[in-house]
Simulated assay, not measured.
Amino acid sequence: MLKRKWKNTNFATVGEIMPRALKHLTKSPEYKLYLIKFYWESIVGKEIAEHAIPKNFAFGVLYIGTSSSVWANNLLYMKFDIIDKINNALKYKLIKDIHFTYGKKGSNKIIPTRIKDKRDIKRILANTELLPQEISAIESSCGKLEDKDLAASMKKILIINEKINKVKKKNKWHNCKNCNTLCPEDEIYCDICKRKLKNGRYAQIRKILLTKPWARYGEIKEYIEGCSAEMVNAARTDLVQRMTANLQITSYDDIQLQTLVMLYRALPPEQINRKTVKENINRLKYDLIYNEMKKLMKKEEEN
C-alpha cells in the first residue's frame, strides 16, 4: 500500500473559506442577475413587473423580456430611470445599458429606438410637455381603478406613452393606413397591420396552391399584391408538410400522391406519371428527414 509522502497541515476553517467563496460568487453574472430578479418588483413596481422580466445579463447590459411590443416601446423611454433605480438598489453601478425584447417568452426581437436623436431619450421626454387637457384625460381614465398603486403606475405609463406619441409626430411619424397607430415616415402600415396583411397573403397563396398545386411564383404574384417568392415557398412547404403528416402510400397512381408531387415540385398535370410520382416521393422523404435534422441541430445550438 502506497503511503502519502507529505501531509497537508494548512487546514482552512469554514470562516476563512466562506468570505473568499462569496467574494468569487458575487462577481458572477448569474449572481448579479439573481439579485436584479430578487429586487425587480420593488424597483419597477408591480404593474411593470407583471409585463417585463429580466432575462439575461452580460458585460453591463441587462436584457429585459416584455409581454408585447407596446410594453417594450413604452419601457424603452424609461430606460435611464430603470438603470438608475437598479444601480441605486444594488448600491453600485452594475447596469450600463438595457435592451428590451418581446415575443415568445420576451426573447426573440430587440426593439429599435427609431428616433433620430438617440443620445438622450430621457432628456427628450423631459422636455416634452403635455397639455392640461391631455393630463386631465389620463387622470380621468386612471381614476376608475380602485387600486391606488396600480392607478399610479398606469398614470405614469400613459403619460410616457402620450409623450412618446408627441416625439414620434415631431419625427414625422404618421397614422397607419389601416388604423390610427403611429408608424415611421418610411413605412405605410404599423407592425400589427403588416402582420395581418402578411397572414392574409399567406392565406391567399395557400388557396391558390390548393386549387392549382403546380402554380409558381410568377403566376401567383399576378393575383396577390405584395406577394414575394419567399412567401410562396413558405406556403408551399407548409402545405407539403401537412399533406405528408398522415400520408399512407398504397399506390403511386393515387390522386393524393399525384397532387402532393405537383405541389412539391411545381409540376403541371401533363408531367405527372407513375415514374415521376415514385421518384419525387422518395426524394421528398429525404428532404423531410433533412429538414427535421436541421431543426434539431438548431435547437441544440440555441440550448
Score class of each variant (00 low, 15 high):
Gly218Glu: 10
Tyr252Ile: 10
Asp287Trp: 01
Asp238Ser: 11
Arg206Lys: 15
Leu33Asn: 08
Trp40Tyr: 06
Leu267Asn: 05
Lys177Asp: 12
Phe59Trp: 01
Leu90Val: 05
Gly45Trp: 03
Gly65Cys: 14
Lys295Asn: 12
Lys295Leu: 09
Ile205Gln: 08
Glu222Tyr: 01
Lys109Trp: 06
Lys275Tyr: 11
Ile110Gly: 00
Lys85Asn: 01
Cys176Asp: 09
Asn10Cys: 03
Glu230His: 15
Lys285Thr: 06
Val240Asp: 07
Ala12Ile: 05
Lys198Arg: 15
Ile36Cys: 07
Glu219Thr: 10
Pro19Asp: 09
Glu222Phe: 03
Lys298His: 03
Arg4Thr: 13
Ile110Ser: 01
Asn282Leu: 04
Ser69Leu: 11
Leu2Ser: 12
Leu62Gly: 06
Lys156Thr: 03
Asn180Met: 09
Arg206Thr: 10
Leu22Val: 09
Ile48Arg: 03
Met297Ser: 02
Leu296Tyr: 09
Ile115Glu: 04
Ala203Gly: 08
Lys170Cys: 07
Lys148Tyr: 11
Lys155Asp: 04
Met243Lys: 15
Thr128Asp: 07
Lys299Met: 04
Leu76Met: 08
Asn180Tyr: 04
Lys7Pro: 00
Lys122His: 12
Ile164Cys: 02
Tyr77Phe: 12
Thr66Met: 11
Val14Trp: 12
Leu284Cys: 04
Asn74Tyr: 06
Asp287Ala: 00
Lys194Phe: 04
Leu90Ala: 09
Arg201Glu: 10
Tyr264Ser: 04
Asp120Glu: 09
Thr276Ser: 01
Met231Lys: 10
Ile205Ala: 05
Ser28Ala: 15
Gln256Lys: 13
Ala151Arg: 04
Ile249Gly: 12
Ala229Asp: 15
Ala89Val: 04
Leu257Val: 04
Lys122Gln: 15
Lys37Leu: 05
Glu134Gln: 08
Ala58Gln: 14
Leu62Pro: 07
Pro269Asn: 07
Glu185Pro: 02
Leu2Gln: 13
Lys55Asp: 06
Lys212Leu: 13
Ala58Cys: 11
Leu22Glu: 03
Trp71Cys: 12
Met243Trp: 05
His99Ile: 14
Glu222Arg: 13
Val232His: 03
Thr101Asp: 07
Lys27Ile: 00
Tyr223Pro: 00
Thr101Cys: 07
Ile205Asn: 07
Asp186Thr: 15
Pro112Val: 00
Asn74Lys: 08
Lys104Arg: 11
Ile43Asp: 04
Asn199Ala: 09
Glu300Cys: 14
Pro54Leu: 05
Asn165Leu: 00
Met78Gln: 13
Gln271Cys: 10
Arg206Trp: 08
Met1Arg: 06
Thr9Tyr: 02
Lys23Arg: 12
Asn303Pro: 06
Asp84Met: 10
Asn291Arg: 15
Cys176Ile: 02
Glu279Gly: 07
Ile83Ser: 02
Ile159Gln: 12
Lys105Cys: 06
Gln133Phe: 09
Ser141Met: 14
Ala89Met: 02
Asp254Tyr: 11
Tyr223Thr: 14
Lys109Arg: 14
Lys91Ile: 01
Lys295His: 02
Trp6Met: 13
Ser141Thr: 10
Leu182Ile: 03
Met262Thr: 03
Leu22Cys: 13
Lys207Arg: 14
Thr26Trp: 06
Arg206Glu: 02
Asn303Phe: 01
His51Met: 09
Ile121Cys: 10
Lys37Trp: 03
Cys142Glu: 14
Ser68Glu: 00
Gly103His: 08
Ile164Ala: 06
Val232Cys: 01
